[in-house]
Write a protein that binds this DNA or RNA. Sequence first.
DNA 1: TTGTTATTGTATATTTTTTATACAATAATT
DNA 2: AATTATTGTATAAAAAATATACAATAACAA
Lengths: 241, 241
Amino acid sequence: MKNPSQQNYISQVSIDCVIFGYHDRQLKVLIPKINFKGDFWALPSGFVYQDEDIDQAAERILRDRTSIQDIYLEQFRVFGKASRTNKPFLDELIAFNFDKLSVKNEAQQEYDWFTKRFISIGYYALVDINKVVPQKTDLDESIEWYSIHELPRMIMDHSDIVDEALKTLQSHLDDKINAFNLLPDTFTMKEVQELYETIFDKTFVRTNFQKMILDMNVLERLEKKFTGAANKAPYLYRFKK
Amino acid sequence: MKNPSQQNYISQVSIDCVIFGYHDRQLKVLIPKINFKGDFWALPSGFVYQDEDIDQAAERILRDRTSIQDIYLEQFRVFGKASRTNKPFLDELIAFNFDKLSVKNEAQQEYDWFTKRFISIGYYALVDINKVVPQKTDLDESIEWYSIHELPRMIMDHSDIVDEALKTLQSHLDDKINAFNLLPDTFTMKEVQELYETIFDKTFVRTNFQKMILDMNVLERLEKKFTGAANKAPYLYRFKK
DNA sequence: TTGTTATTGTATATTTTTTATACAATAATT
DNA sequence: AATTATTGTATAAAAAATATACAATAACAA
């Protein structure tokens, strides 16, 4: 891979992706850990090519960094403080990895490019955690889903970016955003309710919740799901396309 | 004023401001007409200094271009198509103003800087049209309030930017945004209703509207306003700070 | 001075929506 | 066949939104 400073990128502009998943009654965020000594977690991020729409760039970045594709990403906010720079992170990384890293002229050029102040456009998406198989790249040591309440310490302002993404998710859900993206193809009403309770961190009254969701008129009812439990089998539902 | 390319700006990033006012039952947008031959209208725009937060930049740009200050600006969207460039506009401008414009090396450098692809961050604000006195700069031939339904043909995608700002205004009003910013210090209930009807382009039932607004509990009632009309004088109201 | 008019402010009736409660249906177990 | 826990739906109660009624009143006209 070519060094960033030699790519045809727009300088000082980045894109950060917050990918939400849902599993085990927990809202999760997909976060790679970068492949260097020291513990550095960073959202899937990248830069915008000169001839590329920012929406395209967000898709490409997500695909390249996680192998996730064909999902709907949406911008939610720009992060543009003057102090917003990779320098503290990069200095720490270099301190931890002094042995590996060359200090040639070329490295200096990359350092200068990378430690400039960056304006970042935040994108977010909801995915079915069972349908995507995130693949780490050589850049990364791992890529994992973390519960939104147990996020690792991330570089820069990436925690703030996740916070803002969550606020956007909560305020746009069922208006612009569709929670069913977080669920498998078929699901029970109980699973839908648990998902909503997780996202909004509050409980709903079962009977009224069921009515509210059915009144949306976006679900079709399938056959019953026999759970093996000694009680009535719930229906499965599917989101109408 | 120094040429943009020699300023310490972040390159290929701009800020566009949509300033809403309200007068004569019409929602207005403040738009300068630039001081060149040919009819070129463009939103108050500018660039971001290296050591400046984007929010600060938006405030400075608005202040410099219109003399408006101390108002609350908020980012609402990024416009980032790869095709988003000033080149068509600038070429047209040069064709109209060939006599005035030099074609020296320095001008070429400005041309190259300015015709690159730009990512623009949209900001918007609501102001009391009677309280601000927009001042044009040397850059501009005029600066005027235009009814949102009779906007001049603007350069680039500036019409789209206004459309998006209006959508944001409508969806965030009374949630994040405060419509009373568009009114003078004191106003009658009828004026509030007319404002809302203008913004949402729909009518409200007078009695219920009054109840809704008063139930917000953000207005204080002042003395009556004697209009000279042969009927009951309406109360004046003021927004509680 | 008094009735008239158009508009404003408020109260209340009606309808709709939301929330709470009751209860029937049922898959597996006893 | 009775029991149990859960699910689906109906309905009652409360709250919110909308429609309607009406009193108050500033200027004007007779």
